[in-house]
């Protein structure tokens, strides 16, 4: 997807070299993440202020020519191999002067956020974040439906799981299906528990009931 902000010319070469060094790599993961992460990085920067974009570009050029300054050699960052770049960037990341460290921290934060939120990386690490979101959406829908027929509890403790769902099974995939099956089997919504959740000081909180909302009304605006 084209973005308004894009690294161009030699700046792009430097950015690509930096990203190539910082992206995650595993022996059992074949995909080279450099270009997809670079593209996500551009999209991320696109939403950020011009001052930040300028700072990022200036910092890249600073890193490009920083070899002699830090005593890492004369070669430019984009011209040396990946392992050597890794050594240079790691040394700067542990420099005694905090400002230099914070520069690397900025880039590694941007690259890590872009890389570790990619579906293929999440899948490789077994995070299953996207499936988990869908699973949770389904579970919440069932809980809300069940609560519509349930009696309001006498405490402000959350509804739903009381009498509906075994707490041990709450953080499991497929809870919604099991809950739906159980509800279909009984054909009636389970009553809400009168379990009382206590405040930290042991006192019983005040009564709270679920709310109904009014439909929105048309605004009374004077204007076009």
């Amino acid at each position: 997807m084209p973005t308004a902000f894009a690294f161009t010319g030699h700046t792009r070469r430097i950015a690509r070299a930096l990203v190539e060094t910082m992206v995650p790599r595993w022996p059992d993961f074949d995909t080279d993440l450099t270009d997809p992460v670079l593209e996500r990085l551009e999209r991320t920067l696109d939403a950020q202020p011009k001052a930040v974009q300028t700072l990022v570009v200036a910092g890249l050029w600073g890193l490009e020519v920083s070899g002699p300054v830090f005593g890492h050699g004369l070669g430019r960052l984009s011209a040396i191999d990946r392992d050597e770049r890794d050594r240079r960037l790691t040394r700067i990341a542990h420099h005694p002067f905090p400002t230099f460290r914070q520069g690397i921290l900025l880039y590694q934060t941007l690259v890590n956020l872009c890389a570790y939120s990619m579906p293929e990386v999440e899948a490789h690490l077994g995070a299953r974040r996207r499936e988990w979101r869908k699973d949770r959406q389904a579970l919440r829908e069932v809980l809300v439906q069940l609560d519509e027929g349930a009696k309001a509890p006498q405490t402000p403790a959350a509804l739903g799981s009381y009498g509906h769902l075994d707490p041990q099974a709450f953080i499991e995939f497929g809870a919604a299906e099991r809950l739906r099956d159980a509800a279909n089997a009984t054909q009636t919504p389970a009553p809400a528990s009168t379990d009382t959740a206590l405040d930290s000081d042991g006192t019983e909180p005040s009564v709270e009931k679920p709310k109904t909302r009014k439909r929105a009304a048309t605004p009374r605006r004077k204007g076009p």
């Binding site: 910082m22 995650p24 595993w26 890794d86 890389a115 939120s117 999440e122 690490l125 995070a127 974040r129």
Partner: peptide, 25 residues
Amino acid sequence: IPLAFQSVAFNDFGPRLAQRMRDHE
């Protein structure tokens, strides 16, 4: 926090961080 935010909790990058993130769970 989600995986991506967890990754920035460590002051690292590249293969070293990748190795650590294998233990993210």
